[in-house]
Nucleic acid binder design. Structure first.
Length: 458
RNA sequence: UGCCUGGUAGCUCAGCGGUAGAGCAGGUGACUGUUAAUCACUUGGUCGCAGGUUCGAUCCCUGCCCAGGCAGCCA
């Protein structure tokens, strides 16, 4: 019976007559037998297989290089040498698939830049393999967090006809022939002839639809792909990424901030508990301060500061910033970094931002100049969460939409929420990849996605 | 899109105005319950592409391409 390497390595007692299959990480030859280290992706650690040269199939050992796939039967027994508790004493050896000397992955560290050139193979490395396992478990932890709190997992559309869901350039979705689109008499493209009979795009956020479902189901969350056509050339932007967007009816900004903090903390905690081997690896090879930092995140409450107070802190810091600190302007990356990495040295939630810098749907505060918005900033990554209490008062919302030049008729369904049984509600977006960067210490978003999509790369 | 840095062997890099080197990987041999094993020998390169300067360019100059970092946009 085949068992996975992870099970074998955590065995309580010797196991006779088991089968192990996996990919060879390294082979060492001794007199009369060979050590073959195998990883099958089930965990971080490899299983050492001892193959006596007299065992059936052992003649294939000469062709068994790093990267080959093998299948071995044998007995799991305590290893007589240091370095591992268990090893498999093979009774038969089978080379399933060769990997010749052109196999790009060596038994040594590779740069992430090189690994990005071989996305189809890099999941076989410790670094990407660990990332994919952490990613999988974090996704599960997201669902557990919300399901335990009674949130409904909803699926908002990926294709949308709303061209102004928030800031951000959109990818167009069309079946029109780009060389010969249907035209109107005046020469413009006739979008009524397109597949959806109107212009349509890939979603940049499920928030607006999420609000409608929250105003029916109470608490909802989405967790799905999101698309931004911005030409962002940074280590923390992808054109296709996954976002978690909870939306809560009968909830204000304070509840929103608490939910975001609880979520991030719970996810970090479950990473520490469920991915300890992977995180130890990232701590050793990617970011030496990772475990220490994550431990502090779990233990201490996040710092919380209003935008206005944050501006004060920045002005009083005596720091010479490249960009001036001015109330009313967006905080620059260097400002956010100073706050979270130097001043607070912890995650920090900044709330109540200037109204002028924020979109129409955010709730206007009584001071007349700020809105009930919040961002969670974390060391090393920056903004990981962005959210707000939504404007539930019809007159205020319509005024804001008008001021920002939106087509009121196109958003009739959205304003209807405020016409029929409006309630205070709030929500936020958590960037799943940015969370993974924070949890693993990985510095580039391209290394937390199996197949990263960025401008010029798909 | 702007600024900066870089492209030399499969990988990681050194080098330098006189047409190339190391480590690892691969090969051969030795040795060994080994642990990114070790030791010896060895295969392997249009020095990103195109021009220019020069007796001569991998090296200097220009353009382009590609990669990375930072900034803006945001999650």
């Amino acid at each position: 019976m085949r068992i996975k390497v992870r099970q074998a390595l955590t065995a309580e007692q010797p196991l006779a007559g088991i089968t192990i299959a996996g990919w060879v990480r390294t082979r060492r030859d001794a007199k009369g037998f060979s050590f073959v280290e195998v990883n099958d992706g089930s965990g971080f650690k490899n299983l050492q297989i001892v193959v006596d040269h007299t065992v059936p199939g052992a003649e294939a050992l000469a062709d068994t290089l790093t990267g080959a796939s093998v299948l071995c039967q044998g007995d799991l027994m305590a290893s007589p040498a240091k370095g591992q508790k268990w090893e498999l004493k093979a009774t038969s050896f089978q080379l399933l698939g060769r990997a010749d000397e052109t196999f790009p992955l060596q038994k040594k560290g590779h740069t992430v830049e090189f690994l990005r050139t071989i996305p189809h193979l890099r999941a076989r490395t410790n670094r990407l393999g660990s990332m994919m396992r952490v990613r999988s478990r974090m996704a599960m932890a997201v669902h557990q967090f919300f399901q335990q709190r009674g949130f409904a997992y909803v699926h908002t559309p990926i294709i949308t006809a709303s061209d102004c869901e928030g800031a951000g350039e959109l990818f167009r979705v069309t079946t029109l022939d780009p060389l010969a689109p249907a035209k109107l008499p005046d020469g413009k493209v006739d979008w009524s002839a397109d597949f959806f009979a109107r212009q349509s795009y890939l979603t940049v956020s499920g928030q607006l639809e999420g609000e409608t479902l929250a105003c029916a189901l109470g608490d909802i969350y989405t967790f799905g792909p999101t698309f931004r056509a911005e030409n962002s050339q940074t280590s923390r932007h992808a054109s296709e990424f996954w976002m978690i967007e909870p939306e809560m009816a009968f909830c204000d900004l304070a509840g929103d901030m608490q939910c975001a903090e609880d979520l991030v903390k719970t996810l970090v905690k479950s990473a520490l508990e469920q991915c300890s081997e992977e995180l130890e690896f990232f701590n050793a090879y990617v970011d030496k301060t990772l475990l220490q930092r994550l431990q502090l995140v779990v233990e201490r409450p996040f710092a919380r500061v209003s935008y206005t107070d944050a501006v004060e802190i920045l002005l009083k810091s005596g720091r010479a910033f490249t960009y001036p600190v001015v109330w009313g302007e967006n905080l620059q990356s260097e400002h956010e970094r100073f706050l979270t990495e130097e001043h607070f040295k912890s995650p920090v939630t900044v709330h109540d931002y200037p109204r002028a810098a924020k979109p129409f749907y955010m709730r206007q505060n009584e001071d007349g100049r700020t809105v009930a918005a919040m961002d969670v900033l974390v060391p090393g990554v920056g903004e990981i969460v962005g959210g707000s209490q939504r404007e539930e008062r019809l007159d205020r919302l319509v005024a804001a939409m008008t001021a920002q030049g939106l087509d009121l008729e196109a958003y009739r369904w959205y304003t209807d929420l405020r016409r029929y049984g409006t309630v205070p509600h709030a929500g936020f977006g958590l960037g799943f990849e940015r969370l993974l960067m924070f949890v693993t210490g990985e510095g580039n978003i391209r290394d937390v996605l199996a197949y990263p999509r960025t401008p010029g790369h798909a």
